[in-house]
Design a protein around this nucleic acid. Structure first.
Length: 331
DNA sequence: GGGTTAAACCGCCACA
DNA sequence: AATGTGGCGGTTTAAC
């Protein structure tokens, strides 16, 4: 259920007691930085709440706007809260709860970062739905909200009109994912570049990406092979060839690959190819068939089918929506 | 849209 | 004992 959101998409960021400053900073930064090719801001971001709140790290945040912002915003975003009712006993101030429920009911997109998911859960917005939150809070939060289908092994979960992300840094990934689905890869890449963060982590645009849980075992065994494969997307890349590059048996390679990316090698490859095709559609005037060939999807038919399956639009429609008029000169 | 086929996937298990 | 590896083969997937 993706749609093209109007220009100057309005975002209300809800601050509550115990707010995680990083989440507030990263979301305002990424969304506030997103510009079109002409440099015009694409989001109007307003920080709102019932009044001044104490941040997790001992300073006060005084929002310029009140809860009424939630009744008009296109997107409502809730940063993490590391204290207070939602993570302690499942309670939420009734004014906040009502504002959130009303926003969801009128169709606003609802987003949370980190433990912000507990606020959504306390408002009943996640009942029966898949959601992500900070792995460290998994025991507490899953006990308080057993009716939610929690997923603690992913960076973020995109469930259409409700998007939730894992701890702290994953909020950046989710914000970039939102920018990408609203305004295209070019805009998202530009925003990432301005903020000097990777446009996406290994695994591409997967809805379910990597394990955010720090793994003591250190590095990733298949990353060099993924980089190698990215360089030859246009050629056939077989599982056997990738395993060979990684100097592993097919079985071992497949196993490592899945645990590191959350995807099978073929699924990952397909996503990368579709992502590359999207980039070519946005940034070049190459014909659909050429785009398909250069991204390794083979034929225009295959490209059409995969684009339809992943984002629900035809190649030409995608290009019409996201084609950048001219490459911008500044850097 | 449905059928065919080769590749990919992954549980299982023996082995290092 | 615990953990990583890799072959086997039934099932699934997607390209044609």
């Amino acid at each position: 259920m993706r749609k093209n959101w109007a220009m100057r998409h309005s975002v209300a960021i809800l601050v509550l007691d115990g707010i995680v400053p990083f989440d507030l900073g990263s979301s305002t930064q990424i969304l506030g930085t997103a510009r079109d090719a002409a440099g015009k801001r694409l989001y109007s971001v307003r920080v709102c709440g019932e009044g001044p709140v104490r941040s997790e790290h001992g300073f006060t945040v005084a929002p310029d706007y009140g809860l009424e912002e939630l009744s008009t915003a296109d997107t409502v975003l809730v940063p993490g809260v590391h204290s207070g009712g939602p993570v302690r006993d499942g309670t939420l101030p009734s004014a906040v709860r009502e504002a959130l429920v009303a926003a969801a009911a009128r169709g606003a997109r609802i987003v949370s970062i980190c433990t912000g998911a507990s606020v959504l859960a306390a408002a009943g917005l996640l009942d029966g739905r898949p959601a992500a939150t900070h792995w460290n809070w998994a025991p507490t939060i899953s006990r308080l909200y057993p009716q939610v289908r929690w997923n603690f092994d992913v960076l973020f979960v995109d469930d259409g009109d409700v998007l939730t992300s894992a701890g702290v840094g994953a909020g950046i990934d989710l914000c970039l994912h939102i920018v990408r689905s609203d305004f295209g890869t070019e805009v998202a890449n530009r925003a990432a570049r301005r903020c000097v963060v990777p446009p996406w982590r290994d695994g591409g645009q997967a809805q379910f990406i990597e394990r955010p849980v720090p793994s003591a075992g250190g590095g990733s065994a298949t990353e060099p092979t993924r980089a190698w494969a990215l360089d030859r997307l246009a050629e056939p890349v077989t599982l056997e060839a990738m395993a060979g590059h990684a100097r592993m048996s097919i079985r071992t390679f497949t196993r490592h690959f899945r645990s590191e990316t959350g995807l099978s090698p073929r699924q990952w490859l397909l996503r990368q190819r579709v992502a590359h095709a999207q980039l070519l559609l946005e940034s070049t005037d190459l014909g659909v068939d050429t785009v398909a060939r250069r991204s390794g999807l083979g034929s225009a038919t295959a490209l059409r089918q995969h684009l339809q399956a992943t984002i629900g639009v035809a190649p030409s429609a995608y290009r019409r929506t996201f084609r950048q008029p001219a490459p911008s000169a500044h850097r």
